[in-house]
Design a binder for these strands. Sequence first.
DNA 1: TTGACAGTTGAATAGTTGCTCAACTATGAT
DNA 2: ATCATAGTTGAGCAACTATTCAACTGTCAA
Lengths: 111, 111
Amino acid sequence: MAETLNKKISSIKKEMINEREIYDISDFFKVFGDSTRIKILWALDTRSMTVSELCVALEMTKSAISHQLKTLKDNKLVKYKKIGKNVIYSLDDEHVSIIIETARKHLKEDH
Amino acid sequence: MAETLNKKISSIKKEMINEREIYDISDFFKVFGDSTRIKILWALDTRSMTVSELCVALEMTKSAISHQLKTLKDNKLVKYKKIGKNVIYSLDDEHVSIIIETARKHLKEDH
DNA sequence: TTGACAGTTGAATAGTTGCTCAACTATGAT
DNA sequence: ATCATAGTTGAGCAACTATTCAACTGTCAA
């Protein structure tokens, strides 16, 4: 009885995955695999910010920040709004927080 | 009334994060940022496997697989058991599935 | 002991990536 | 028009990384 249920749950949980999706997933995680980008996401999870504000917060050059914002933009993790000379960036996805928090939980565990 | 509640929720949700944790988080995601390692994790999420079995499943050399298994081992994502000449690897953490599934959800969405 | 099989490891190489620098666009103020 | 500010972009370089190759350890069988 319980075994049949487990098999059912297991078959629902485990779907097929193809070569293309594998690359999409690993490319997606590459975006999170850089400390500067994590800092940006963390900062933007607090509040929306302009590029200059991010430069001050992270103590980095406009160019470096802008390059990383492009990567985040391309991966649909941040969105932006132009207001006059400023460009205000903000998070574009609720998954970002979930993913980072799950990682933190994992890292807090003792093995 | 609603505003006060939002502020409270916001303060609970958002904890401090330090420089060290930023690097730990990005290092953790670097592990997921490689297609070979995703393939290994995906395969091991189906069932435990020896190195040779993984070689057949992923069509790669023992050496390449072994190098990546070391990385996964170091990051506490897989565990292993020696049985005779064989080394059987399996997933070491329920967070792995959660993280990969959240990424897949994100990638499936249209923006 | 010898040989075959399973897996690990270190060095070398080829490819990738993050930051800097300089040049650029665009907007607003004088 | 001119200048300052805000941000973007492409090239180049230094640092990193995934795979290959060859040599190695450890286990089992004859």
